[in-house]
Design a protein around this nucleic acid. Structure first.
Lengths: 229, 229
DNA sequence: GCCACGCTGTCACAACGTTGTCACGTTTAT
DNA sequence: ATAAACGTGACAACGTTGTGACAGCGTGGC
């Protein structure tokens, strides 16, 4: 989920807070302090998602969102709206601005990330990712395909996301908890050992081309994707 | 960077903000909402670092920090203090509470993480993610790998932690008791001679590349990791 | 609607690695 | 020489991971 996200927020502290957390979550954050600036940036490069403050100096967030929806080119870009209080949120819903989700200030970074993740999964499931290749194992998020030495390999959705994460974060150990957070999402409750089972399924799927050896167990630490034995 | 960090903060929103960011950075966050609760948690398990709000209901942060410094067991635990305004920070410095660093609210998560990293590097290098290399022996916590002159070496979890500690505290003798505290954890009950056995296992694991000579026995004192014979 | 199918999460058990301790051999200092 | 300190191999208890099976769930075809 390496998405480019445009954060439109005039308050520098909140801008920093949001951008930083998005970057920590592996995204690429673009910053704009007002709607005019944001429009300019959208013209240059289309982001995968817009996080938008409702209250902005000059053109308001609502107005900006309307402009996005009006232009065919930017019509499909998902928007998460930031509102100051719960009752303002209600007002907004009445206005039907076309936002994909709302966040009420103050919000926790955890909540922000969860919603960003959810929206991206819903609205931009494939657009953001580049193909990866390691040791003859190719994974292409766009076509949702995995190919080992030329032969296509079949794996389920979870196995695919798991492999994608591991391949884009190779040469590093991840604990079961970290994998659950990163691959499953950070607000779900599943047993840690479930990771084991999916690792096994993934290994089995990669077995035909012997690429299962790339997935290594690090006892009492977690799993690692590595090209070297 | 896999450190256990105790966050003492009564404001739930800030507590969440800090904890979440620490977890994103790969740490394990323990939460306490007041000093009393924090003391109890410290009794159970010693954290690698304490992030402490200055203002707390009941026992103040300063008082808590003093208690930490007073007890030999918790004396060495680094503390990062959170203060509300810059001028309070000056006051605090005058009071010499013994904090390792200060953060003035409002602070950005980026700043928090930077300071945490800096303090850990200074006070608890083995809780850090930084790779270590001494005399051709490389240890990388991120990938959980040990490589001697290019060839990978296999060692068990305890041996890995032991080597990590020794390499980040080289040229210094540690007694069996100290090693037990640092590598095994405090308040656990194992024979001192157990250290001998693990030292031996570690030496055996490093033998293939002759790096076992870096681990030296200091008779009637303990062990030392040293590059010089 | 109804059914077949694939996917998911969980469990129980097997397989394997790790740990702490002991007993005994070896070295070192006085 | 003698006692203390350290090295080393063996081992049983323990913890961690691999694996097959299974029931619940949602989806798409009919």
């Amino acid at each position: 989920m390496a998405a480019t996200i445009l954060v439109v927020e005039d308050e520098p502290a909140i801008q920093e807070l949001i951008s930083y957390n998005l970057e920590l979550a592996g995204h690429n954050a673009l910053k704009a302090q007002n709607a005019e600036q944001a429009l300019e940036m959208v013209r240059t490069a289309l982001p995968d998602l817009v996080v938008l403050d409702w209250m902005l100096p000059g053109m308001s967030g609502i107005e900006f969102a309307r402009k996005l929806r009006a232009d065919k080119r930017t019509q499909a870009v998902p928007v998460i709206m930031l509102t100051a209080r719960a009752d303002e949120r209600d007002k907004l819903q009445g206005l039907e601005t076309g936002a994909d989700d709302y966040l009420t200030k103050p919000f926790s970074p955890r909540e922000l990330n969860a919603r960003v993740k959810a929206v991206l999964r819903r609205r931009a499931p494939q657009a953001t990712d580049d193909p990866v290749e390691i040791s003859g194992l190719k994974l292409d998020p766009a076509s949702h395909r995995v190919i080992g030495n030329g032969t296509p390999l079949a794996l389920g959705p979870t196995e695919f996301r798991l492999l994608h994460f591991l391949m884009t974060h190779s040469e590093r150990v991840y604990s079961r908890t970290q994998l659950l957070d990163q691959v499953w999402g950070d607000h779900i409750f599943v047993e840690e050992r479930t990771v084991d089972v999916h690792i096994r399924r993934l290994r089995k799927a990669l077995e035909p081309t012997s690429h299962d050896r790339l997935i290594q167990t690090v006892r009492s630490a977690g799993y690692r994707f590595s090209a070297t034995a």
